[in-house]
């Protein structure tokens, strides 16, 4: 009887051992499947996240471009509307200044007459009284100042209108083979006075192929950004200029260690008339003009900034800008 029970127990133990062994293999297989699926999920999730980020960036760029395109049209309209009256205001002011100069000469002649002994009569006396009463000397001197200020103001309006036209322009002009490095150095030279006292400038130029563009305009873009960079550095800091190449683009980075741009206004910096500078320091057109120039080259301009740490402007210009010129 004991033997029978023993054999039965042994049989059951053997059965359980085999079942346990199968379960162990099955568990291992399940773990392998789980691991494989987890890796697949991780990879898929990673791809999805990257795709989502790209989509969000593209969406944001599209919205920004659309907005800037609309502003471009608006700017062109405003520039045109202002330009016409501006032209006749400038012309009339110039004529008026000529007339005033002539009037001034007549007045001087009259003054000479009024004090001349040759004309010692009642007419000369009256003339002297009138000239004294009206304080014509003051009026003539003040008119000169008024004309200077008016003309200065008109020049500023003219510049603003020209910049607005520049932001919205669609025509390429005066293009030539241009070395990006030359334009950067040229901009640096022009901005020297605003940079040299408090900024260290680091230049890291990889050789880049020449691009077909308007040299002065490209220099203007760099100048705008370099001046902004210098103004963003309150005490001492560094401005770094780099050029490099990818397969399709020339990439220009202009970085500063300045105060940075708050995130909430970063999207608006290319809008015409947008400025974070104090009143009178900037027109808010520099970056919008730069945007227009780079866009004309089928390139892109973007900014990344960390408040308190600095800002980097990145400009991408296609290697083959000549094709765009043909298309235009």
């Amino acid at each position: 009887m004991n033997e029978t029970i023993k054999a039965d127990v042994n049989s059951n133990v053997s059965l359980l051992k085999r079942a346990y062994s199968r379960e162990k293999r099955a568990r291992k297989e399940t773990e392998e499947i789980l691991e494989e699926k987890t890796l697949e999920l991780f990879a898929a999730n990673y791809e999805l996240k990257a795709a989502n980020e790209t989509l969000l960036k593209q969406q944001s760029t599209l919205v920004k471009n659309e907005k800037l395109a609309a502003l471009g049209e608006l700017s062109a309209g405003i520039a045109h509307e202002i330009n016409n009256p501006l032209a006749f205001i400038i012309s009339n002011i110039n004529s008026l200044e000529d007339y005033c100069n002539q009037f001034s000469e007549i007045t001087h002649a009259a003054q000479k007459v009024s004090v001349s002994e040759k004309y010692d009569n009642e007419v000369a006396d009256n003339l002297h009284k009138v000239l004294d009463k009206q304080d014509l000397n003051y009026m003539i001197n003040d008119s000169k100042l008024i004309f200077e200020e008016v003309k200065e103001g008109l020049d500023r309006v003219k510049d603003i209108v020209a910049n607005l036209k520049s932001f919205s322009r669609t025509q390429s002009s005066d293009r030539e083979d241009t070395d990006v490095k030359d334009c950067l150095l040229s901009a640096l030279k022009i901005a020297n006075n605003k940079v040299k006292y408090h900024c260290k400038v680091v230049k890291d130029f990889d050789p880049t192929p020449s691009i077909y563009c308007n040299k002065n305009e490209l220099t203007q873009v760099f100048l705008n950004i370099i001046i902004n960079a210098a103004q963003a550095i309150p005490k001492q800091g560094t401005i770094t200029l780099t050029t490099r190449c990818s397969d399709d683009y020339i990439i220009i980075d202009i970085s500063d260690t300045g105060i940075g741009i708050p995130e909430e206004i970063l999207d608006s910096i290319f809008n015409p008339f947008f400025t974070a500078k104090p009143l009178g320091v900037g027109t808010g057109l520099g970056l919008s003009v730069s945007y227009g120039i780079i866009k004309d080259l089928s390139g892109t301009i973007s900014a990344e900034s960390t408040p308190g740490a600095g800002t980097t402007f990145t400009i991408l210009i296609p290697n083959d800008t000549r094709m765009d010129d043909i298309n235009v």
């Binding site: 199968r22 379960e23 399940t30 789980l34």
Partner: peptide, 9 residues
């Protein structure tokens, strides 16, 4: 398979 099966296999 040796009779070892898992639901995911």
């Amino acid at each position: 398979t040796g009779g070892s099966y898992s639901s995911g296999g």
